[in-house]
Amino acid sequence: MRSPTADPVVVAARLGVRRGFIEMAQSLTNRADQVWIVTVNAAFVAVLWFQRDSDLSGTGFSLALATVPGLIGMNVAMGGWMATAQTLAVEREDGTLLRAKSTPNGMVGYLVARVVLAILGTLLGLVIFVVAGLFLVPGVADVPLRGWLMLLAVFLLGMAATMPWGAIVGALVKSSGAGFGLSFLPMVVLVAISGIFYPITGMPDWVQPIALVFPVYWLGAGMRDAILPESAAAAELGGEFHTWETFAVLGLWGVVGLALAPRILLAMARKESGSAVESRKQAALQAWS
């Protein structure tokens, strides 16, 4: 009776894609979001401006040239991990998730929309940094096609490596405030130790192994690998780019995250109910007053 094109799950997935685009448009037309996007990106572009004349560890390249890929990598971790965790925590609290749950296949649509919105939001940052780099930083315009393709590959793999973990944090925290704290603070620490703004070779020895465990370092390293010329490798650990290690570590985070996240999301979704949302609402209202 049903035509194959009307498979409810496919319909819901398509609605999820549309939902992601609608939410992106809403974000771009929202005043608070606009202010946030402009302020944050202006701050990072200012970093590039000030760094443009500094030298990268005696390699003869501008420090700003190394910061552009670092920013792009950090942006992936922010969009994939931090934003996902915070959105999920907020939308559990405000009842968005419960609404999705009471709609047939609504959770499929909801999760697809989360992925689409995270990718769109992260792409926006990526475009901003690339364009700023093209104008401000000598050398970005010379990146070959192979470099841009690798950038795209690291971007996609980075999203896969970070989003599931963002979803896990968002699913496990008790409130939107905790979601913000538990995603923002580790992010700040990891960015600080991961050689995003300053080469990791300049970090204390005991810090390096910690940074090497997490995706933030590898996102930065992968993006530098993609954009910087071979000779800039002198500033990397061991004086060379670690292409395979980059893909291996990010891939491992992605595989483990994707294996764990669905189970944790399912358990989270099972617990959503009107009274669960109501009690979180009361807790949040109390926290404000």
């Binding site: 409810p8 319909v11 819901a12 609605l15 549309r18 939902r19 609608i22 939410e23 809403q26 974000s27 929202n30 939308e91 405000d94 009842g95 968005t96 419960l98 609404r99 009471s102 709609t103 047939p104 296949n105 609504g106 649509g109 009107g274 949302v277 109501e278 609402k281």
Partner: peptide, 23 residues
Amino acid sequence: MQSWRDHGRWRVRQLLQHLAAYY
């Protein structure tokens, strides 16, 4: 359900149309 502040950025018809489409 008792809504609180979900979907605050959506327009009324837009949200209803979106949720309707799942059916």
